[in-house]
Design a protein around this nucleic acid. Structure first.
Length: 422
RNA sequence: GGAGAGGUGGCAGAGUGGUCGAAUGCGCGUGCUUGGAAAGCACGUGUAGCCGCAAGGUUACCGGGGGUUCGAAUCCCUCCCUCUCCGCCA
């Protein structure tokens, strides 16, 4: 959510942000709502003030006196009026709040203009992509693939998009997770193992609710399976005021992630490219507002380093305004090259939310200079998502003999130098 | 899952219909005192919205939501959470 004061004082900034993100929002309607909400609030407060004053008088008065009884009659009318006006106030306030939640975050000045994913800026490219993998195949076409990743059995047992990982497939997945977590801890993140179900309040604070509930699996008792560790991790400090000295707080967490992916279909979702349950390590930071853009660069570097150590070719995209996402101020996507599919696969998305999430989740710190609470800035990024990295390893490192070469950094975790599909 | 007890400010803890945003103690801050510290003394010390250039004013918040009442921390309903005992269990 944006600062309501920003909207009142500089609506043109918000208008420009909406335009840069190519969204369709009726800002004038929000401004009108804001004005009428404030007018109603003043009215109700005036009435309540009167009621309060009368209460003090009545407390001191003789309860049986005629003055007292007259006062009761008088205040009955006021009470009724408050009730009516308050209903109107609450109704308007709900509409105002919903309208405020529908306003997107402001893109940072360094975000390039653009409407579509094609207009994202290729910020960096690392590694050779064509000649390096002479035996590459799309991972689902590699002979023996279903020995490692069994979609058919997964579909029988649970449903489409819930594969079993078996043998070296399961082991490689576990090795990657272990590798990611160790590297992230080494980089200064504290490892956390969070709950993988969250309540509605948490899902609301990070923006999954109310609009995206169709993307989450919901249990009978109104808990949601996490779509990413970002949700429980961010909510850890919800409604809290941290000491300034504590910042920046850097944490990482592995969780399985559950996404219904309603409406997805086609080539993009083949094999491991998109599944309903996948493993991911998430990186999360709560930082002082003055350092959030430095921290974003560090976060991106931390994610990139993982791909470098795995010797996987990748590129970094700087997202343009139109592809930025509703709540981000700035975002880099890391895409790994899958040599068999000849496609880039997104394996990490590193974002600065500035105070947008923090305002919604009420995560603040006490500024030492003023003693007053201020909103933190939050950032997050994957470090990294497992299935697509696994797919890229299988495709890129496939040898003539049908085995897959394991990158040196991963060998200690995997326990051997080659993966076999047998 | 069953039975019981309880949720009040940073913490402890009073308050069972009105003068209560809330006693008292601790903690914390500033000052006095001191060679310095402790003790002592004085004053101060929650969050948020709205109005205001400001000074300041005003409203809300006693686990969440709803209700009764002229008036609710206090009464009623409901949900959540914590603790104790029992049961079950990786």
């Amino acid at each position: 959510m944006l600062d309501p004061k920003l909207l009142r004082e500089s609506p043109e900034i918000v208008r420009a942000a909406i335009a840069r993100k190519h969204l369709d929002v009726d800002l004038d309607a929000v401004l009108v709502l804001d004005a009428s909400w404030r007018a109603l609030l003043a009215e109700v407060e005036g009435l309540r003030s009167r009621q309060k004053a009368a209460n003090h008088e009545m407390a001191a008065a003789n309860k049986g006196s005629s003055e007292f009884l007259a006062k009761v009659q008088e205040m009955k009318a006021v009470s009724q009026e408050i009730k009516t006006k308050e209903e109107n106030l609450n109704f308007t306030q709900e509409k105002w709040h919903a309208a405020m939640l529908a306003l997107p975050n402001i893109p940072h000045a360094s975000v390039p203009d653009g409407r579509t994913p094609e207009e994202n800026q290729v910020y960096a490219t690392n590694g050779a992509i064509e000649s390096a993998s002479p035996h590459a195949q799309a991972h689902w076409e590699i002979p023996g693939f279903s020995n490692l990743v069994d979609f058919a059995r997964g579909a029988k047992v649970t449903g489409a998009g819930f594969p079993f990982l078996i043998g070296d497939g399961a082991k490689l997945s576990r090795a990657l997770l272990q590798f990611f977590l160790d590297e992230d801890v080494e980089a200064g993140y504290t490892e956390v193992s969070p709950p993988i179900f969250v309540n509605a309040a948490s899902a609301t604070a990070t923006g999954q609710l109310p609009d995206k509930e169709g993307q989450m699996y919901e249990t009978a008792d109104k808990l949601y399976a996490v779509p990413t560790a970002e949700v429980p991790l961010t909510n850890f400090f919800r409604d809290e005021i941290l000491e300034e000295d504590l910042l920046p707080v850097c944490r990482c967490a592995y969780t399985p992630c559950f996404r219904r992916e309603a409406g997805s279909y086609g080539k993009e979702v083949r094999g491991l490219n998109r599944v309903h349950q996948f493993d991911k390590v998430e990186l999360l930071k709560w930082v002082h507002p003055s350092s959030s853009y430095d921290e974003l660069e560090k976060l991106r570097n931390d994610a990139e380093r993982l791909l470098q150590k795995l010797e996987l070719p990748y590129r970094v995209l700087l997202m343009c305004g139109g592809d930025l996402g509703f709540s981000q101020s700035k975002k880099y996507d890391l895409e790994v090259w899958a040599a068999g599919q000849k496609r880039w696969l997104e394996v990490s998305s590193c974002s600065n939310f500035e105070s947008f999430q923090a305002r919604r989740a009420q995560i603040r710190f006490r500024a030492k200079s003023t003693g007053k609470p201020e909103l933190v800035h939050t950032l997050n990024g994957s470090g990294l998502a497992v299935p697509r990295v696994l797919a890229a390893l299988l495709e890129n490192n496939l040898q003539a003999d049908g085995r897959v070469k394991i990158p040196a950094a991963l060998v200690p975790y995997f326990g051997k130098e080659f993966l076999s599909f047998k």
